Amino acid sequence: MRTVARGLLLAGVLTAGVLTAGVPAALSTAAPAAEARAGAAAQAARDYDLGTIRSSRKHSGHAKAKLWITSFSEKHFQAYGSLYDLDRHPGHCASIRATFHYLEGGAGRSPERRFCASHGRSRVGYLFESKGEIRSVDLRICVADGRRGPVSHCRTETVRDEDLAW
């Protein structure tokens, strides 16, 4: 009996989702938080998880980033994820930057994002967005000397549309 009740409840929830999917948000009776979660889940289903990229390990510490990207066919391509500072040296930070190579030619650089691990905080989110359609993106992750110092131990990951065979 419990299984049947759960099945009916699930069917009702799915039906409500289908019926309200085409209804404008102002007319929908669904809660705004539920709509936001559904939109985020739909977006994540279209995005590509490229795993983790790491800076060079030529000394005891390193930086790493979890990387997600949107489709290359999007008008404004996005690269996003979490940045981790895994260098035990005081004053060293994790640094990440994106360089977008546009379809119509030219390249654009995002502002650099730095994160210095502090008390109990192990990661920070980042988001880079292009200003148009791109053919490739270079993501450069490094260990940085403080919040404003030079970067070192860098590694660059290039992602192209043809690399994604999904």
Rank of each mutant, 00 (worst) to 15 (best):
A144S: 14
W166E: 07
V13G: 03
G22T: 07
A65F: 03
V137D: 01
L9P: 00
A45F: 06
Y126I: 01
G105S: 12
L50V: 07
R160P: 08
R147W: 07
V23I: 13
S73D: 15
K58T: 14
S82V: 01
L164K: 06
A30M: 12
L50M: 03
F77L: 05
Y48W: 04
I141L: 03
A44K: 15
A36W: 08
E112G: 03
K58F: 09
V23T: 08
R123S: 10
R37D: 11
S55M: 12
G61W: 02
A34E: 13
Y80C: 04
E112I: 11
G106D: 13
D161N: 09
A33T: 12
F115C: 01
A38L: 12
W166G: 10
A42W: 12
A107T: 13
A30P: 02
G12Q: 09
I134S: 00
T52V: 11
A33F: 09
E129S: 14
T15E: 04
L9C: 03
E157P: 14
F100T: 00
H119A: 07
A31H: 14
L19P: 00
Q78Y: 02
R57S: 10
L14P: 06
D161L: 06
G17F: 07
E157S: 10
G132M: 04
D145H: 12
G17D: 09
R155L: 14
P150C: 05
G12C: 08
F72Q: 01
D163H: 15
A41E: 13
G7E: 14
G7P: 11
S56I: 06
G61N: 05
V13S: 03
W68I: 01
R37M: 10
P90H: 11
R148Q: 15
R114I: 15
E129V: 10
T29R: 13
R135Y: 05
L9R: 08
H119S: 06
S56D: 08
E133M: 14
R121W: 02
R2I: 00
L139P: 00
Y84G: 02
C93P: 00
R135T: 02
P150G: 12
G132D: 06
S95A: 11
E112Y: 15
A144M: 01
G61P: 02
G105K: 13
R109L: 04
G125C: 09
H59G: 13
R37I: 07
V13Q: 05
R160M: 09
H119T: 07
K64C: 08
A42M: 10
A144E: 00
A40C: 11
A94V: 01
L9M: 06
S71I: 10
C154N: 11
I53K: 02
R155D: 13
L86F: 06
V13K: 08
R160A: 08
R155V: 14
S73P: 04
E35C: 10
S122T: 12
H89M: 11
T3W: 10
H62W: 13
H92L: 05
E129R: 05
A63R: 00
V4M: 05
M1K: 08
V151C: 08
A5D: 04
R46H: 05
S55N: 07
E129D: 11
G51R: 03
A63N: 01
S136Q: 14
R160Y: 15
I134M: 00
T70R: 12
D49H: 11
G106L: 03
E133P: 09
A34I: 09
S118N: 14
K75R: 14
L10N: 12
K131S: 01
W166I: 09
